[in-house]
Each structure stands twice: as C-alpha cells, then as structure tokens.
Design a protein around this nucleic acid. Structure first.
Lengths: 215, 215
DNA sequence: ACCTGAACACCGTTCAAGT
DNA sequence: ACCTGAACACCGTTCAAGT
C-alpha cells in the first residue's frame, strides 16, 4: 500500500489551511498538521524544508488568491484603494501579518500591489525614491493596524469577568492625566471603531501635499 | 540555608533583563530564566502567575525607566516629539512591541505619553474623539515601523550567501512590474533608510489639516 | 522514492512533597 | 512560607530503518 507519493504538497497546504481556519493560526504545529493530513510528522519534512518554509508557501498561495479588482482612475485614489485591499486581504487572515513581520517578504504574488502603490505615487508627482517612502509609510501603518486589531479581538475574547484588563485606563489619575481620565468611560468604544481609512487618507494627503503640484 | 525568601521579584526581573540583553528576547524561557536566577523553574511560579504576567511586569518596569524629556511649546511639535520618544524607547527594546501587540495595554507608566499626544492634539484643535483617532493612527504607524524594522535587522543577520532572500525583488518581471524592476537594484538601500520621521509628519500634518484652523 | 518510529533537545505549567 | 523534583502534555527536527 504505497510506492506512489501518497502525500502531496497541495494536500499538506490544504490541511494547513483547514487547521488554521478551524483552530487558529497559533495552533498550527507540525505534529497537528501531520495528524490533519493523515501522515507522520516526519513525513512533512519530505515536502517542506522546515516550518518556516511551510508558512512562506502558505502565504504565497494565499496571496495568489487575492482579488485584483479594478482600480480608480485618479492616482491618489488608487494609492488608497491598493492599500485598502492589502489591509482587507490581510485582516481576513491576520496570522499572515504576523508572518510578514517575521519573514518580511511580501511574496511574489502580492508584488502587483506594491507596484500599484509605487506607480500611482509617481503619477501623483513623486520621485521613485519618494514613492518608496510613501509605500513604506503605508505598509508600516497597515501592518500595525492589522496586528493590533487582530490581537485586540483575541484579547476581547479572553477578557472574562475574572480578569479585566481595562482597569489601568479606568483607574487613571485625574490630576495628572486629565484627557485620559475624561475619556476613560468611552475609551473601549472609541478604540474599537474602524479608523483605518481616516488615518490612511491623512498619511497619503500629508505626504503628497509637500510635493510640487504637477502642471 | 533557606527560610527567608531567597528569590525576590526584583531578582527575577533583573535576571530576565540580563537574559534578554544577552541572548535576545526570543530566548527568554521560564527554564532558562530560572537557571539565570539560580533557582528551579517551578520556583518562579511563586513570584509570577505565568509567563505572560512576567512579561507584563517586565514591560511596566521598562516603561518606568523611559525618559521624560522637555516637550516643545508648539502643540503639533509636541505630538511629533511624544511619538518619536515612544518610537525611540521601543526601538531600543523591540521585543516590547511584540509584547504590546500581544498584550495590548500600554502600561501605566507609559500613559503620560498617551496623555501628551491627546492633550497636544486637543490644543491643535481636535475634539477629544479626533484626538483619540490621531493617537491611534500614530500608534499603528509606530508599532508597524518598529516591528518591521526589528525583524528586518534580525533577517539581515541571517541572510548569508547560502540563502539570499531578495531574489523576489531582483527577479521581477520588467513588463508587468516596471517600477519595481527599475528600483530592484536600489531596493535594499532605499528600504533601509530611516523614514519614520517623514511618515509621522505626513500623518500628523494630513490629519490636522482637515480641521478648522483655530483663531 | 517515499514513509516511518524512536529519539533528541527543548517548551510552560501543575502538584505533591520537602525544609 | 518558601522551595523543589518528578511529571504531564506538548514543541520542531534528525536520522537510521523500513517498504
């Protein structure tokens, strides 16, 4: 029962996706993955170099599935739109961001979005160098937003009556920290709103405004 | 030899700091920490609830050591200055950011910096809600920058001749990705520059510019 | 060629037992 | 009260042996 390859790369990847979607990204271990794929843990090492290699391949596969919707004609709006797609794609799979900050390569199949930001920025009047600077600023902002938001969600799930975490904000010294004290009650609400678009637009507008207007 | 407490919280924290500074944040384990502190791993659990608790205490201690330099008079410059201090403080200890995105509470002793941003933003003409939005945008940008930069450094160290990682950018399709192709040779240089201040200023300027000018 | 069990060198944490 | 060894339930990875 078994001379032809019984376990394929595709099967392993599919099992990994199932595992992540069902149990969460942090529960993906080689041993559990092997169980999910129906093989021995050691067999996996015939198809991937190590766990890092597995994750990289997983990420590339995911990036390939990313939608490539039509882009607005206005270049500035195109920068915004491209960033928003990056953000929405990654927000749906926040583990990918954790991966991206660790193995910081965007993956071949996501490069078209980097290109989109760069080309649009140049159309807005940026030099190539400035385009890279803008792209990097947007990426920092986006990666930070997703990471923090993802872990916020996870923390909220754990935040039972037994271990409340917001006491620090609540018990704030009114004299020394008046703004925080005044906002303490509304802090949870205020920080749970989605303000990604607002900050993104501020960043892009603020960056482009320093350039000489074309024409 | 041993009825009075031989191991104190302070000793454990000092050992943890030594371990992190010497071997790096990812090498901090309960077992290694115990060895460094000269006790049994199980003894640690008398002084901290679990590893997460240890890290939180470690972070609070660190935040307390943070400098509180004089702030500029101009409120907009104060926003910039406060953010820059956050960034510089955390950049010196990047593991803290990783911690912060996981256990997303700034720590009591860092709250004065949040207050600084909020109060300055209000002085710039923000409503309290807008001040929170600006603070959050800045925090996303800052956290992302530090995380990505920290892991960039780590990756560079590992990037031997044997496993080059920049091939993706180099082997880019000139027809489909012209901007990237044109920048390929300079990509490493361009992305290693420190552009934190530039992006921060863009973000703050872009945000504040949408407000009605006071006076 | 492909798969496997046993083994190595680790983790965080609990708990009954020691002083 | 404070500390401890043994143990539990895990990790990623290697390697010699099996079909």
């Amino acid at each position: 029962m078994g001379r032809p390859p019984r376990t394929s790369r595709a099967e392993i990847m599919a099992a990994a996706r199932r595992l992540i979607d069902r149990d969460g990204w942090e529960r993906l271990t080689m041993r559990r993955l092997a169980a999910e794929a129906g093989t021995a843990p050691t067999t996996l090492y015939h198809h991937v170099r190590d766990k890092d290699d597995l994750l990289t391949q997983l990420l590339d596969d995911y990036a390939e599935r990313m939608p490539r919707p039509a882009m607005p004609a206005d270049p500035r709006e195109r920068v915004i739109a491209a960033a928003t797609i990056i953000r929405e794609t990654l927000a749906a799979w926040p583990w990918a961001v954790e991966m991206l900050t660790h193995d910081n390569q965007v993956g071949r199949s996501a490069l078209w979005m980097v290109e989109m930001v760069l080309a649009s920025a140049v159309e807005c009047g940026c030099s190539p160098e400035q385009a890279v600077d803008l792209y990097r600023s947007i990426w920092y902002y986006t990666a930070g937003e997703i990471l923090i938001r993802a872990n916020r969600g996870r923390r909220q799930a754990e935040n039972t009556d037994a271990n409340p975490r917001d006491d620090r904000i609540r018990a704030v010294d009114v004299a020394e920290l008046p703004q925080l004290a005044a906002l303490a009650d509304r802090w949870a609400d205020l920080t749970s709103r989605d303000t990604y678009a607002l900050g993104l637009r501020s960043l892009v507008d603020g960056f482009l405004q320093t350039l000489p207007t074309p024409g």
